[in-house]
Design a protein around this nucleic acid. Structure first.
Lengths: 202, 202
DNA sequence: AATTTGAATTTTTAAAAGTAAAAGTCAATT
DNA sequence: AATTGACTTTTACTTTTAAAAATTCAAATT
């Protein structure tokens, strides 16, 4: 029964996600995940070749969730400004929710397996693609100047993600930044976006 | 002869600066600095209470040099765009030249003494003040909209510095990024600045 | 045949202990 | 006051060891 097998795989994925989101990859053991599910540890290895792959699958899962969430919200035609605000807000919402999975992974990028590193790059590209589409629509609608979409979306993404990084102080201390900090960053990102978009207006 | 004493202090500062810029703080020993100068190690401690203070003095020295350099270049009245380009270029020039002292210190901020951390904060403030003045003149000249200067200069600085951080991959490997990378960042920063400033135009 | 597991094996991580190098001190000297 | 050589204290690096966690696998179950 492959259906059931897929279900089991998903169960593992979800349980792992909960653990990873709470404690991060390093402080989550395969034994703990197995225990949560009342599975044997070995069964996890039947469904996932290793811990790294499991983590990668979780990361991918979260990324897809974010991407779908944003895409759905952008279905109704909005102005460029409104769309960008949606993107920034959704992104921050996810960063808060899955801090250890998303941002912490980025911060720890230096000691990441190439597999995970590639996933991060992919997710970055996917974020850029979303931004690019928003800008493209803006251009098509005659709202924005005709610019190099690829370049502009990259610059925008670097700026807004970068703002976040400037503020991060303690990579070491595995504390999650508090709500105030997240909100302050988001406010800055929105303000920056508003000016940036105005600078692209026809 | 206090004059001579001050000279000696400066000599130490300069020698230390050369070492620190080349090898970074961790890989520079007090003994090496002393040897370069043919002084005894103990003499360094006569002029500076400890290694950290010496490093802080060097950092401060470099920061002042950068600040003066930028301020001088901005003496002749330029447009906001031109001024910002000057700031970005000078800053990058210094980052290249004193990589280990400037950027590396920022990247290693997490394990910095509070004394040094404060210096970084100060230098950040000084950079922000420069940007603020540029924008202020732009507003006074009627070139830019009337905005919250403090807020806007902070956002601009976070964006441009942040772009740099997004690109940095290996905090660990103590390699200096190559010229291409510096140039690519600078190009992005300039492009971002152009759009940002356009977004602030009256 | 596809799942599942307990037990065994290998790899990582973490703590402890020891060692070498560098930081920092100080009494004596110029 | 400026300077130093010799001395002490810290810190950073290795090595060792033990424990924990990852991974494998032969056997059992469905």
């Amino acid at each position: 029964m492959p259906k059931n097998a897929d279900e089991k795989r998903l169960k593992i994925l979800e349980t792992a996600k909960r653990r990873f989101a709470h404690y991060g990859m390093a402080k989550t053991t395969m034994a703990e995940i197995a225990k949560d599910l009342s599975f044997s540890k070995a069964l996890l290895y039947y469904y996932f070749p290793d811990k790294n792959s499991l983590y990668a699958a979780v990361l991918e899962h979260v990324m897809e969730e974010l991407e779908e969430d944003i895409t759905t919200s952008l279905k109704s035609i909005l102005s460029v400004s409104e769309s960008i605000v949606v993107v920034l807000e959704k992104r921050m919402e996810f960063v808060k929710k899955y801090y250890y999975i998303l941002e912490y992974t980025v911060l720890m990028r230096k000691d990441l397996s190439s597999e995970l590193d590639q996933l991060l790059i992919d997710s970055f590209e996917s974020q850029k693609a979303i931004i690019r589409d928003v800008f493209r629509q803006g251009i098509e609608r005659g709202e924005l100047m005709d610019v190099d979409l690829e370049e502009i979306s990259k610059i925008f993404l670097f700026s807004s993600m970068g703002m976040r990084l400037v503020v991060v102080k303690d990579l070491k201390s595995s504390f999650i930044p508090d709500k105030e900090e997240f909100d302050a960053i988001l406010a800055m990102q929105k303000k920056m976006a508003a000016i940036f978009i105005r600078g692209l207006k026809v």
